[in-house]
């Protein structure tokens, strides 16, 4: 029982991370039809901006360091949207999008290597405590992952449901041409959406830094598993991201009760393939009608 609860704790924490990852690429996919294959590197960049620059270099306090990192990443996202996504969006085949974003990812990693150095480091004392309640260990970072994720989802719901900007983002996701006919500046809206995605990436990068350290490979596994989460829940949708993220997080940890630990990382990808073959629309799947 204890081990079950222990595994559930880490399952939920990682589930929240996969959810954030799935949301972060889904918003771009919804707005522009592009799948961002460099999203893992955006997360890594977020981790480096926070850990490498704000904390190590400027010795900032955690809170302002985080906020400033989000701002920096937002600007980064807007620049990438304007300079790279916009031309990619107009190329005829999604092949170009795949390779274009992959190359962008490589460039980001090389920049990280040059700016912050090749060796991994940990941010001393950042979310490194653990709390023990009734025999179950709660690492501080897991608790914050869950808290921040819930706050994020609430803020995002307010953004999408209550604000004019958020509603305009939903319009662009639903039908770009009709959105333009409402007087929405679609190109600018996409830039804002990509910037928003970059901000989510920064949040993820900061949250996983205590787990994976700050390292150029820190997001490799979560970025690919985030794709699995999206497919399991319902690709490209917010609801699907939440459900899929938690499902992947929990089953890959629960698997440890029945199978050898070395195959834990395979679980997400097996789930990915099973769903793609059996139910490609995912758990919350509806047949999405998308119009260009």
């Amino acid at each position: 029982m204890e081990s079950f609860l222990q595994l559930l704790v880490s399952g939920i924490a990682f589930g929240c991370i996969y959810t954030l990852v799935a949301i972060e690429y889904s918003v771009i996919y919804q707005a522009s039809g592009l799948v961002n294959f460099s999203h893992g590197q955006w997360i890594t960049l977020g981790g480096f901006v926070f850990g490498g620059t704000m904390i190590r270099q400027f010795n900032m306090h955690y809170i302002p360091a985080m906020l400033l990192s989000l701002v920096v990443m937002g600007i980064f996202g807007a620049l990438v949207a304007k300079g790279i996504f916009n031309p990619l969006r107009h190329l005829p085949n999604n092949l170009f999008v795949v390779l274009g974003t992959v190359m962008l990812g490589k460039i980001i990693i090389e920049l990280c290597r040059i700016i912050w150095g090749a060796s991994a480091f940990r941010i001393e004392g950042f979310l490194s405590d653990t709390v023990k309640i009734g025999g179950i260990v709660f690492p501080e970072v897991y608790i914050w992952i869950v808290i921040i994720s819930v706050i994020f989802l609430v803020v995002q719901a307010i953004l999408f449901q209550k604000t004019k900007l958020g509603k305009a983002m939903r319009c662009v996701a639903s039908d770009q041409k009709a959105a333009a006919l409402m007087g929405i500046n679609v190109n600018r809206n996409i830039i804002i959406t990509v910037a928003y995605s970059a901000i989510i990436c920064a949040i993820i990068g900061i949250l996983v830094a205590p787990i994976f350290n700050v390292d150029i490979n820190m997001a490799n596994s979560i970025s690919l598993k985030g794709f699995a989460a999206g497919v399991v829940g319902g690709f490209g949708t917010i609801g699907g991201s939440i459900v899929g993220g938690l499902v992947i997080g929990i089953i890959e940890n629960m698997y440890l009760m029945i199978g050898p630990a070395i195959y834990k990382d395979v679980v997400a990808f097996v789930a990915l393939i099973i769903f793609l073959l059996m139910k490609p629309t995912g758990l919350l799947g509806k047949n999405q009608q998308k119009r260009s």
Binding site: N94, V231, V266, L272, I273, L276, L277, P280
Partner: peptide
């Protein structure tokens, strides 16, 4: 076989999944 049922980005994700499973195994 999967390519008979799914296409586009879904197929790409299948191949990524296959590659990762191979590497992990």
């Amino acid at each position: 076989y999967p390519s008979l049922r799914i296409k586009g980005i879904y197929l790409t994700l299948t191949t990524i999944g296959f590659g990762e499973i191979m590497r992990l195994l």
